[in-house]
Design a protein around this nucleic acid. Structure first.
Lengths: 232, 232
DNA sequence: CGCCAGTTTGACCAAGATCAACGCAAGTGG
DNA sequence: CCACTTGCGTTGATCTTGGTCAAACTGGCG
């Protein structure tokens, strides 16, 4: 299912970083990073391969070094909700309890750091700075999930797509050009829409001159208009 | 806006607890609780009053002693999403960053413990057991929020209502009788539905003999049927 | 008893889902 | 090198779920 590269000590910060990661580098709290790195293993997963599945044990959590990961939940009849997309610098897979309630898959070829939960807990107890950092990471995920409750519960298709594009842009330093490493279907499953609705909304925004659509990237031609649509 | 009762050391465990709280009592980790209690203040809020608002500073977090709280987010045009209902034993209001992105209101008369964030952080650094406990609490909220993404993104009105009733029942030790301290409108704003749809679904479930509806409580007459509807 | 807020029900409407056809680009194999 | 396949993306026609608007009902309370 995956190749494990023999790199017990990670090469965090040495390469493979793109523009989206600076919040780790910026923090400057290298001692914590080093403590964490010591217990991390570098892994490689290729496109579409499963990193973990619903129901497996959750003895590990991960951080994306490069590439994109989708974390999702399935219903028995095949309906799917993507809980989050993880880009480089993002963490995922830290769960309570014994069983994973989500699955995670590589959307592109992906390099990950994998951390053992028990080792992390030991480190947490020894080093308050690490504990603070991890708690902060969890609070960040919580805020993101709660923001998406509003999007899924109360926003129109058009508002959802506009918010999505702005979110992707912001995660990439506000670049006008937004890469879409995921399929239209993934976008639909992230936004609670069908693939057809996603397409129609994108076409509509294109017709109105707000964006330019290319199949795996989009240009934000009129960001203020997009922000007005997204209501922020 | 609120009355602050002069009770610097809480009466946790002495009274005002209903059946929904045992996970705190059960944990038996009293030293941590005592350490936390030392920095907590007991407060009282009356029905409909705001505990904090969107945009305020977030120097505190809270734990419900008795009563019910709703945590919600508003859009400019008045659309509202309730992010969570908090019953006794639940914590809320722990956020990163400087500004609250949600507001919290008392749904009924409510007794809360309020904890200072800075004091909590100090305690976290000194006492790993407290840090673990708080991190666990945040992970629990995260799991709950992520589960609701699936509900809001991919479930039908009927499935949402059925899940909601089962969730309330489970939080109350699986009782057949489910109390509804919130209005139909609150339920709608929690489930991403209108009040009319909530009513219609409840009436439909009543007609099918699955539940008995009384305006502020509901009886689960046929739990297996409800579970089948909720897809679990 | 009558008021009023909250709830329920009905008639109608619209956003988005479903179903179906078509386009298009990247393989694949002859 | 070119027909053929395959997988994704786009578009159109139609349908359905749940939203909107409006009216009636209910129960708690002065």
């Amino acid at each position: 299912m995956y190749r494990q590269l023999a790199t017990p000590r990670s090469e965090l910060g040495q390469g493979g970083w793109n523009r989206a990661v600076p919040d780790v580098a910026r923090s400057g709290q290298l001692d914590q990073l080093i403590a964490l790195e010591e217990i991390g293993i570098r892994l490689h997963f290729s496109r579409i391969h499963e990193i973990y599945g619903q129901g497996e044990g959750c003895g590990f959590w991960y951080k994306v070094v490069s590439g994109t990961v989708r974390v999702c939940k399935l219903l028995a009849d095949g309906r799917r909700q993507i809980v989050e997309f993880c880009f480089s610098g993002d963490s995922f897979g830290l769960e309570r309890g014994g069983e994973r309630s989500f699955s995670a898959e590589a959307l592109s070829d992906v390099i990950l750091m994998r951390y053992s939960r028990t080792a992390t807990e030991r480190l947490n107890d020894e080093n308050p700075a690490v504990a603070r950092r991890l708690h902060d990471m969890t609070l960040k995920s919580l805020a993101a999930a709660q923001d998406r409750l509003l999007l899924l519960g109360r926003m129109t298709a058009c508002e959802r797509v506009a918010s999505f594009l702005l979110e992707l842009s912001e995660r990439n330093d506000g670049e006008q050009r937004v890469e879409l490493p995921m399929s239209r279907c993934d976008i639909g499953d992230y936004l609670g829409l069908t693939i057809e609705t996603v397409c129609r909304v994108l076409s509509d925004l294109k017709r109105r001159g707000v964006i330019a659509v290319h199949s795996h990237h989009i240009e934000l031609l009129d960001r203020p208009a997009l922000e007005a649509i997204a209501e922020d």
